[in-house]
Design a protein around this nucleic acid. Sequence first.
RNA 1: GGCCCGUUCGUCUAUCGGUUAGGACACCAGGUUUUCAACCUGGUAAGAGGGGUUCGACUCCCCUACGGGCUGCCA
Length: 479
Amino acid sequence: MVSERLIGMADTAPARPVVTRFAPSPTGYLHIGGGRTALFNWLYARGRGGKFLLRIEDTDRERSTPEATEAIFRGLRWLGLDWDGETTSQFEQRHRHAEVAREMLARGSAYKCFSTQEDIEAFREAARAEGRSTLFHSPWRDADPATHPDGPYAIRMRAPRAGETVVEDAVQGTVRFRNDQLDDMVVLRSDGTPTYMLAVVVDDHDMGVTHVIRGDDHLNNAARQQMVYDAMGWEVPVWAHIPLIHGPDGKKLSKRHGAVGVEEYQIIGYPAAGMRNYLTRLGWAHGDAEFFTTDQALAWFDLPGIGRAPARLDFKKLENLCGQHMAAMEDAALLHELEAFLAASGQPGLTPPQRDLMHSALYCLKDRAKTFPELVDKARFILTARPIVADEAAARLLDPVSRGILKTLTPQLQNASWTKEALEALMTETAMAQGLSFGKLAGPLRAALAGRTVTPGVYDMMLVIGRQETIARLKDAAA
RNA sequence: GGCCCGUUCGUCUAUCGGUUAGGACACCAGGUUUUCAACCUGGUAAGAGGGGUUCGACUCCCCUACGGGCUGCCA
């Protein structure tokens, strides 16, 4: 099959270095679906030693804002998706676009259309009434230039009416469109500005984009854009239209599903590596691989592995993956990302002493948390100063009997060797002396040390905060 | 309405004509255990429906249903 041959060629023997791009319109936050599209493009290019470019599609002057552009940058940076070279602005290329439109005019592959919006609306109105196709057929397509009025005009593509346009898509396969189903799209508006349909093609060509990986809401557009490539005699890129992401209910992702903006995920506290893993796995598979590093994703990512059906967001699985990545992360990197999380979510940062404690405690914290808020919660024993205020559940464990036991423990801790083994021996001994199981002792101990019933192991906490602080907290609790 | 895409456990998916349809998350049960978490073991659970093609279809073709997209001088 033709499509398979194309895919094979693209994957095994690229004729030229791979160049991909992410081309968001700056009209709001970076959508999670857009984030995944960017990730796929980044993985594909970088995994092959190619280039990943960023172009801001800001030709809609009404809706484009610099704030939105900034939000896109922040979102991509958080995901760790760096792009090559300068960011390009589609709007700044408008003169080049217009030049191409005029070139198409000169080649006869486009024509001046003097129809007004009202003419077109009337045409569609009539077509609807008669049950005909509402595709606009401009009367100016074959008009004699001598009859052209001296007014504003749009430039329309002179699209072929017969035959079909075949899109070879690396994900969707061979997709055929009958040309009579496609109309003569406007490439240059009557105010002289280019339309998206023209601008993407010109920009992708000028930037040397070899693979267009984007949402499948553009699949139909590919057919029309291909006509522009053909008209200009340009090489058509490899198309890869990936399915959109849906909400947990299978419906199109929207605000009511909760987090739709990439930045919201950072604020919720997912580690970026876990986010990348999850997003890569959503709609793409490499056999049974579930948990993998970004380096592995770079090595494995390919187009044939992309699925054709829309995927639903599953926060449970996201969390699970994030938990695994947290546990696998280097302490220094984890600490760094934790601080970035605190800043991004508007929380107070760590003081230098807290930072040191956190660093030394991460070993017993990181495999207990799936998100940064969970990590912070589990780290409460090093983030709060004495006196430790016990929560309700912890307070219940500090009954008079338990407090008495804690009291007998403090002198022994004074002389104990401060290692896990020694502490363990001491605790077990103390528990037995009281006729208790160690579990009965650990509860109050934990409550005294952290004020919580959910914490890292008691020995780990004691080792992290040290002898003096441990004894002080036990005395506080026993008092 | 027209055109285009899609449909395997609840969810993400493997399978590229021949498998007891595999894995992961979630869930349930058990184990380990100083709580929670983590961890270990086991379990429930799937090819939308109907026609073909074939010795044999989840895999190929057609129809239907359902979901999604496009149908702009938006991107």
